[in-house]
Design a protein around this nucleic acid. Structure first.
Lengths: 339, 339
DNA sequence: CTGAAAGCGCTTACAG
DNA sequence: CTGAAAGCGCTTACAG
């Protein structure tokens, strides 16, 4: 209790060698059943735990994964995008399930983060969850690849690069959302969210949106797409801009729930009713979506599955197995905001 | 690039001994300026990073803190209490600022978590953020203490125990919230939240509430306190129960924002207006509070400061410095839910 | 200011 | 099935 027990202490008490203790504790088949039980009993009694630093040093692995949340520095201080927090939860769980520990770090996009986690043997691999401008992001990825770091990123597939990426099928989500609005009788659809290559996920949602409109034979006015980043206030601003244009619209597909909630606030403030005058669909299905008034119909990203796939893929990559990019299907969660 | 550089590689290239490399990299005053610069330049060039496992093993420390989020198993899968997520953010930041890494783990209250983080030298200390039933929680704390683990817990002071705890001044928060409702002319105040010793934080808020009422000479009916755990649906149920009692009330102090939001949903559903018929105050100031309709007036817990104090205190404890429990003041955030 | 050496606590070939 | 020994990559007294 005063000082930590080591495998030598156990060896002494069990009357065997330290090597045998190590084997017994690792359930090596090489060790006699009886010996093993005795050793394990003593270990338990002494509250012995294998020293991670020593075993990691010896095996040159860490059984630890690092999660890097790359934040947009424009964001409020401890206000992390709820969607990423949900991912954090599922990644933590999936990591634990695989017997790994998780090191978490928030990084400013601006900082020099291409992270020494793997270099310093703190982690066997890295999961990157990023938002903010994608362009900045990309350089750092190159650096990671150069160093042969094992990593997987959450987001759209990086076509030109040998980067393992797992993401939701944003395009399909955009299609579903738009089809739903059309099915509800809406014909003048607006889109709030940056649709440039700086936000490839939003862009894919927008492209899905346009494809669905085209298939349904509905024309879309270019001005009905206004930019916004994924915050409530940006969604509010986006909707206000839309309203100022005086172009009529009877539905809004917001690129994220936060945007949708801000947009609903703007619409209501301007005397429009949701869903009667304007139907609204969001994206993500963050917890707030169900508390919104009216309840927000949205495209759910399956964060639980996403976390599992991210972790599994990274582990496969580390172990040298074959891996490939994956697109996780999204689904429509119907509430009240579309009537 | 193919294989990781070690201090021996650097020593070879720099024409010095490995010990000197180690000293130079650690900015030891014992090493010649010129030598140091040369070594550091080579290290940078080779993209060398000190192997954490080796240095930790040698120094018997890990420069890592572990954060254990103890969840109530009744909770939805990846739906973590937003307040704790906010704490997670600030703890992560504070940890990084001190040059430590953070290992994050979610634990079921039921599981045998008294965690081998420190035993196995993975972390130098542990931060516990828990919710759920406090009674269950307490036993595990004893176990941790027995093992001389360095840890700090978020929550009310553990009077009878030598446990370091940092928490918000829940009692004071309860007073402020109640005084605000009284100042708004309300006289029949209800409280939604478990007020038993199973939830000491809620209990403190309730006691503050009662004290403020007493000071103002307002009597409170015992039945105007109804139990609820910190979820939206539990808040909804609590408010419904309150309404069924037919005892009149013109204000609700909810023990958490999630409860407040659920209560507002119930009130509105039953045709009552917030704040005209019933004023509502929450507790926490989670992001959702500002998106609620009407905006939720609430008692803010300063999570940024809390994270910093938790980390600083734990670090002091680890270093053998003197530490003491701390109570962090709360503040009123006024929005629209109280008129 | 520098180097040779010990040792942190494990795991795992190697020999028996 | 077991033990003696090497070695993972560092840090830090010790000697110079």
């Amino acid at each position: 209790m005063t000082t930590k027990a080591t495998s030598i202490d156990i060896a002494y008490r069990a009357g065997v060698s330290q090597s045998t203790v190590s084997r017994a504790l690792r359930n090596s088949p090489l060790v006699n059943e009886e010996t093993r039980l005795k050793v394990q009993a003593i270990a338990k009694e002494l509250n012995y735990k294998v020293d991670k630093n020593a075993s990691n040093l010896r095996t040159q692995s860490s059984l630890t994964l690092a999660l890097l949340l790359c934040e947009d520095p424009t964001n409020d201080d401890s206000l992390i995008n709820p969607f990423f927090l949900s991912m954090l939860g599922s990644i933590t769980r999936a990591t634990a399930q695989q017997g790994y520990d998780l090191l978490v770090s928030f990084q400013q996009l601006s900082s020099d983060w291409h992270a020494d986690y793997e270099d310093s043997n703190k982690a066997d691999g890295i999961i990157l969850l990023g938002y903010g401008d994608y362009m900045d992001y990309e350089e750092k990825l190159d650096k990671l690849r150069e160093q042969n770091t094992h990593f997987v990123i959450w987001g759209p597939a990086q076509n030109k690069q040998a980067v393992l990426s797992i993401g939701c099928d944003n395009h399909q989500g955009g299609v579903i959302a738009t089809q739903h609005l059309i099915a509800k009788g809406r014909r003048q659809l607006a889109f709030i969210g940056d649709a440039s290559s700086h936000s490839p996920e939003f862009q894919a949602r927008y492209l899905g949106h346009k494809q669905a409109l085209k298939r349904a034979g509905i024309s879309s006015h270019k001005q009905l797409q206004v930019d916004a980043i994924s915050t409530e206030s940006s969604g509010y601003d986006g909707a206000m801009k839309l309203l100022e244009q005086k172009l009529p619209f009877d539905a809004v597909f917001a690129a994220s729930d936060l945007i949708a909630i801000g947009a609903m606030r703007a619409l209501k403030q301007q005397g429009l009713r949701v869903p009667e005058d304007v139907a609204v669909v969001g994206f993500d299905d963050i917890p707030v979506a169900s508390f919104a008034n009216p309840g927000l119909t949205t495209i759910k990203q399956n964060t639980k599955l996403a976390g599992e796939i991210l972790v599994d893929s990274l582990l496969k990559l580390i172990k040298g197995k074959e891996v490939s990019n994956q697109l996780i299907p999204t689904s429509l969660i119907e509430r009240q905001s579309c009537g």
